[in-house]
């Protein structure tokens, strides 16, 4: 084990960790504001990945261009899903929420299977294999670096939105005290549509940013969904900052696991962290409540 290998593994982990963070922020935002766990979140990401793939395949659109299409479309998709489906189960008991979001995830995955079959697809761009050599034997992949930087920028933008805009503040207020929020004139349903819309838009951004260096297939959502659920537990459910930091942490842990435990069992370390968190700090590393910023 040379230091170069370790440094390379940490860099790779951090870069993919940014994407994990972006997906997890969505799960955490929905939980913090609307108070349920969206088990279909990974599948939202999968939908955006397929959309990106087809826009490239059929229209020749570069993923960094189709980002400007997939993100607003998924915002609308999320807002509609909230209005038509999720709204009916919020405020009630946990089970209908779990069943509904889980079923939606299965439905989306199977629709993808029906229309696109189980083929593994990817987008080939001129920059897919482009790297920067930052030091002797240490390389950074361009598309991964771009994904990481855009993920950080979007996380920062969300943070600014939640603290600086009226609707962002209203979202936090409704998360903390729904009744009182209504008394100052906030319509919680509207706030919930925006929250689920934004969370879906972030998943879309993550999915599109992944496409230049990752593959899409109908079950890819489960892979990212699973990581996101571990991240939000480790990073404290409902905590936006915790989701981002948790994403980076688990990205690195996973990458080290792949490097030193084995490519097939790299996630052993991820779930070890999950178990340790649940045993030692069940409320997560950033322990708190509500939609934290």
């Amino acid at each position: 084990m040379t230091p170069t290998v370790v440094i390379q593994a940490v860099i790779n982990g951090l870069l993919i960790g940014g994407i994990y963070g972006l997906v997890s922020i969505g799960v955490s935002l929905i939980f913090g504001v609307v108070k349920f766990v969206n088990f279909a979140h990974g599948e939202f990401l999968m939908v955006a990945m397929f959309a990106t793939f087809w826009m490239w395949q059929l229209l020749g659109l570069d993923p960094y261009v189709s980002l400007f299409i997939s993100v607003p479309l998924m915002f609308l998709f999320g807002a509609c899903v909230q209005q038509v489906l999720f709204r009916r189960v919020i405020g009630g008991s946990d089970l209908p929420q779990i069943f509904l979001t889980f079923a939606l995830g299965i439905l989306l995955a199977n629709l993808a299977l029906l229309f696109f079959r189980a083929d593994v697809r990817t987008v080939r761009t001129p920059y897919t294999d482009a790297t920067i050599n930052i030091a002797n034997e240490i390389f950074i992949s361009w598309p991964r670096l771009i994904a990481f930087l855009v993920a950080l920028a979007l996380s920062g933008a969300l943070f600014t939105f939640l603290t600086r805009t009226d609707i962002g503040q209203a979202m936090r207020a409704a998360a903390q005290d729904r009744d009182t929020a209504m008394l100052v004139g906030i319509d919680p349903d509207r706030v919930y549509r925006v929250a689920v819309g934004l969370a879906s838009a972030l998943a879309a951004a993550a999915g599109t940013l992944l496409m230049p260096f990752f593959v899409v297939h109908p079950y890819v959502g489960a892979q990212f969904g699973l990581i996101a659920f571990v991240v939000v537990i480790v990073g404290t459910l409902g905590d936006i900052r915790g989701a981002l930091l948790g994403g980076l942490l688990l990205g690195v842990v996973e990458s080290l696991g792949i490097q030193f435990v084995g490519a097939d069992s790299g996630r052993i370390l991820v779930f070890l962290i999950l178990l340790l968190t649940l045993i030692l700090r069940p409320s997560g590393l950033f322990g708190g409540r509500g939609a934290r910023t």
Partner: peptide, 15 residues
């Protein structure tokens, strides 16, 4: 709203 600042609370009063 406990986790909002005083200014944010007032701001939301005029939402």
């Amino acid at each position: 709203f406990p986790e909002l600042t005083v200014r944010e609370n007032l701001n939301l009063g005029g939402y």
